[in-house]
Design a protein around this nucleic acid. Structure first.
Length: 480
RNA sequence: GGGAUCGUAGUCUAGCUUGGUAUGAUACUAGUCUGGGGGACUAGUGGUCGCAGGUUCAAAUCCUGCCGAUCCCGCCA
């Protein structure tokens, strides 16, 4: 009874997949919906998403991007307009075939992504160079039928995300935008979620269908697999031509515009759970934690309760005045030990314990979630809590960076590669740039090119597969 | 798409082979005691046995179909 049944019943290192699912459910971030592949976000899960959304919105706004909203239904005739794009998505599109009892003529897709819809509108909205650049972001959900292998946050048939779509006069301006967005993604994920990412380009084989090229950020998970954290695509004129997104330039000559699209999803929450969680459950980075400090009052009787609570309320007020999200656990009838474990499962970054002993000494016990360290703090040190939270945030990033570094290795011998890939990890291995080698490596080892990091061009080495001259040193890994 | 396992109260679970009105724990409610790492006792509440058919006097149990979950392989934003 007790311990084993209530908390997380498996160890992270022992059964990673089961551990992940238990943390999601038991920390009350999400639950399963009655339809396959769909999940329900609970307030603690949604709160993390809102926090990320707010951060992104501020950064997008600073970059001249505004939010809009697009409908969820897209007619088949529209979705099929860019053929490669359509062929890529077709197998996983949900179709609406009826309205009421009537069959609809042109089937309606539940959006797997909105390029085709957005650009139909864009072609109406853009006529002159004065209308450019046009930069709009959409917070919505995308639907892609996942027949198998669904996993909360990581792979679901409907997921929350943002999709940004920008239009530019010049190729260069569009390409600069692609990189600006990728930078926003990278610094937000690193500073808010404390997860290090590797940025670069996808290979031709792995790029977004319909894009000229795809830039990506990839992170390594504790089980050695790679997770795509977000992508920013340079669409070139691949969509502006079929959708006639054109503008009249200053010299009154009509040009097709240059476009970008980019997105991150709630998969980021999944990554955060995997990277930081431990055997006791979730560990939240302070910046996105719905509750940053939880106070557990301890008392024996009514008088004790009163003394303790007046102090606890005082601390709450003081923390709130410092913009800290604080919660007092005043649930009756639960032992302090139970509450400690409960808040640890939910990942609250800091816990304060205050009982009669502490009041006497004018101090309190403070426990840090991420390393389970406990210490005694004088009441006067409450002033330092905001900087302590910042410090925790940094230390969590450092720790994750260190782990990522350990699991990233340079390998140039294919025999070595084949053996070590079984344990997972990011492998920096030289590549000749040919699809045949990429395919063969995938076929033989299950590893694929996750990202060709910026600055990894290197013509001095030999391709790990064919031995010919290399063009770059991509990151190979098995992915989610 | 191929393979394997599974579905009984909020959660976990016994019962299924050999059909006969569902077991236990935990959670929940009330009360008393308790309270610094998952507390104790007492009394309660809670079930279309995943759904739909079939066989039978009788189905959680046997048969068929469907829905859902987990894992491995394949495929993919």
């Amino acid at each position: 009874m007790g311990k084993e049944k209530i908390g997380i019943t498996v160890e992270k290192n022992d059964d990673f997949s089961e551990w992940y699912t238990q943390v999601v459910l038991k920390a009350k971030l999400a639950d399963y919906a009655p339809v396959k592949g769909l999940i329900v976000l609970r307030p603690d899960g949604y709160s993390i998403w809102e926090s990320l959304r707010n951060t992104f919105d501020k950064k997008f706004a600073k970059n001249g991007i505004r939010n809009g909203f697009l409908p969820i239904l897209i007619p088949e005739s529209l979705l099929g307009k860019e053929q490669k794009h359509f062929a890529g998505f077709n197998p996983e599109v949900f179709w609406v075939t009826h309205s009421g009892t009537n069959e609809v003529g042109d089937r309606l897709a539940l959006r797997p992504t909105s390029e085709t819809l957005a650009y139909t509108l864009y072609s109406k909205w853009i006529q002159s160079w004065r209308d450019l650049p046009l930069k709009i972001n959409f917070w919505n959900t995308a639907l892609r039928a996942e027949i198998k292998a669904t996993k909360p946050f990581l792979r679901t048939s409907e997921f929350l995300w943002q999709e940004g779509h920008t239009v530019h006069m010049t190729k260069k301006e569009a390409e600069d935008e692609v990189i600006k967005i990728l930078d926003i993604y990278k610094n937000t994920v690193e500073s808010e979620l404390a997860i290090p990412v590797t940025t670069g380009k996808k290979s031709e084989k792995e790029k977004f269908v319909g894009a000229e090229y795809t830039t990506t950020m990839e992170s390594i998970m504790p089980d050695g697999k790679a997770l795509q954290m977000g992508t920013s695509h340079f669409l070139g004129q691949n969509f502006s031509k079929p959708f006639e997104v054109k503008f009249a330039d200053k010299d009154n000559v009509e040009h097709f515009a240059w476009q970008t699209s980019w997105g991150v999803s709630w998969r980021l929450i999944g990554a955060m759970i995997m990277v930081h969680g431990d055997d006791k459950g979730l560990v939240l980075p302070p910046k996105v934690a719905p509750i940053q400090v939880v106070i557990v009052p301890i008392y024996k009787n009514d008088e004790g309760r009163e003394t303790v609570f007046s102090k606890v309320k005082e601390i709450e007020k003081s923390l709130e005045s410092k913009q800290i999200r604080v919660h007092i656990d005043d649930r009756e009838g639960l032992s302090p030990g139970y509450k400690f474990n409960d808040w640890e499962m939910k990942g609250v970054p800091l816990r304060i314990e205050i009982g009669p002993k502490d009041i006497e000494k004018q101090s309190m016990v403070m426990a840090k979630r991420y390393n389970l360290e406990k210490m005694n703090l004088n009441f006067t040190e409450i002033e330092n809590i905001p900087s302590l939270l910042d410090k925790i945030q940094n230390e969590m990033l450092n720790k994750a960076q260190q782990e990522a570094r350990v699991n990233t290795i340079d390998i140039s011998e294919y025999s070595d590669f084949k053996v070590k890939i079984e344990k997972g990890g990011f492998f920096n291995s030289p590549w000749c740039g040919k699809l045949e080698c990429e395919d063969a490596i995938k076929e033989e080892t299950g590893a694929e090119i996750r990202v060709v990091p910026f600055g990894s061009e290197d013509k001095t080495q030999k391709c790990i597969y064919c031995g010919e001259k290399s063009v770059s040193i991509p990151v190979f890994a098995r992915g989610y």
